[in-house]
């Protein structure tokens, strides 16, 4: 599994409203042909604002669960 996870986009559920782009603090996501694409993967902070503001659940962040040190 890649270490630099990125949000998963489900194009079928996406309406192309662009809210994810508007809320992304790092401009990592842009609309390409009406659908979001993580165009600057290195800039994605995995902050989850795109997911939180997407009205249709078309962009999602997945998490692993583990044990860690503070």
């Amino acid at each position: 599994m890649q270490d630099w996870a990125l949000p998963t986009i489900h194009p079928q559920e996406c309406t192309g409203c662009g809210l994810c782009v508007q809320y992304c603090p790092t401009a990592a996501v842009e609309l390409v042909d009406g659908k979001p694409v993580i165009v600057r993967p290195a800039d994605c902070a995995y902050c989850g604002l795109c997911e939180e503001n997407c009205p249709t659940g078309a962009i999602e962040l997945a998490y692993e669960i583990g044990f860690g040190a503070a």
Partner: peptide, 19 residues
């Protein structure tokens, strides 16, 4: 849920969305 699904073994952990 977190306790039950926390995996100590890093190689192929399952990823969960909040949904």
């Amino acid at each position: 849920f977190l306790l039950r699904h926390a995996s100590a073994d890093a190689p192929s952990p399952v990823r969960w969305t909040q949904e």
